[in-house]
Design a protein around this nucleic acid. Structure first.
Lengths: 206, 206
DNA sequence: CAAGTCTCCTAACTATGTTAGATCAACCGA
DNA sequence: TCGGTTGATCTAACATAGTTAGGAGACTTG
């Protein structure tokens, strides 16, 4: 009747191996890029042959998906750890700063999470969920700061994404764009501020 | 002594075929994505077998490079065709509008030119040159409008890149972000305007 | 026409994701 | 303790990719 203990040991071993595989994949990705991951390399790094990985993942994309899920969980955890000070400008700066730091801390992870650069890969809904939740938190937070216009939120996320995009594309490893987080946030805040007290602007577009 | 005519005919035929190959590659890219290009498909579309392409290009990446060069030339032509009105805000809007339209008009081309999404590919200096020249024109134009702070230029390009990046990543084919070109430009202009008349700001960064 | 060059072909090599099928150990119920 | 089941791993092999080697045929050139 006691078939739980052994089952559990097996399951634990299994998820340990899965984690080991994912770690190996991250390692290779950081050395050779996301697209540089080959199943034979991953397998070798955990002491296996390539086909054996299929006992743990249905496909290479399933490995990407597990990596995506891990990254998305980290991102969500970081977002949830942000503690609002109450000062809108400070909170906006902290938010964008976190986003930019998260990106530069691990460019490969950012590439996997926020750019669509792996040819046939799309994250599963389960893996994507934490990312959605994080964005929802950001939306709610901006709304709490008095910025409820969806266009304003889009502009704010575009600012962050733009800084990172330019940084990675034109000066990887540098800070020519990422150091603009504060000015960018101030620019945004100055623009969006009047809308809080008075009727909305920004409806015109030629 | 007249070996020019035939030589020329041959050379012309050769560059015609090269152009045909590149066109076929663009076609496939628009149907199946940049990474979806296979030499066998390209060859079939011009009535050849894959190895025959090597008479015209040294490698698959050389085909990407030729495509990049073509796209960069188009971009430069578009930038050069922009005619300043003299009104700074209008000119800024037109500039960013052109950039965004160029991107949405042909996402695959934008992806090739401005994102680094093809695993082993990097454009050759010759192919890259027009892009550099275009950016130089943009820099000079902003400077002419009184925006000489390099940080301001970087902020401006990040804004454009961010709108497109978010648009492509989150709502391909839509206009949720690209329609923010005018508000974004106004935001930028309002922020950078004071610096034109008075001493510069934006030196602080914590 | 003869020699050379260019174009295109088939065959084949390598790398990569993936599948099929065998082997072997661990485990489980009797 | 023993036979059957399950699971992990392997080798062999396949399909698809870019790429190379080498040759056949056509065109150009003298």
């Amino acid at each position: 009747m006691l078939d739980q203990p052994t089952r559990n040991r097996r399951a634990e071993q299994r998820s340990r191996t899965r984690a080991e595989i994912i770690d190996a994949a991250w390692e290779i990705a950081r050395e050779s890029g996301l697209a540089g991951i080959t199943l034979r390399d991953v397998a070798a790094r955990v002491g296996m042959r390539a086909p054996s990985l299929y006992s743990y993942f249905d496909s290479k994309n399933a490995i990407y998906d597990a990596m995506f899920a891990e990254g998305a969980r980290d991102f969500l955890a970081g977002v949830e750890a942000l503690t609002p000070t109450g000062d809108p400008l400070t909170d906006l700066k902290n938010g964008m700063r976190f986003y930019v730091d998260f990106a530069t801390a691990d460019p490969v992870r950012y590439q996997l999470l926020f750019q669509r650069t792996i040819p046939g890969f799309e994250p599963s809904p389960e893996s994507y969920a934490p990312a959605v939740k994080a964005l929802e938190i950001a939306r709610a937070e901006l709304s709490r700061l008095g910025i409820s216009d969806p266009g304003a939120l889009d502009l704010f996320t575009a600012l962050g994404a733009g800084l990172i995009s330019q940084q990675f594309a034109n000066e990887p490893g540098g800070d020519r764009w990422t150091r603009l987080v504060d000015p960018a946030t101030e620019m945004f805040y100055a623009y969006v501020l009047p809308a809080r007290d008075q009727g909305n602007r920004r409806e015109r577009r030629q």
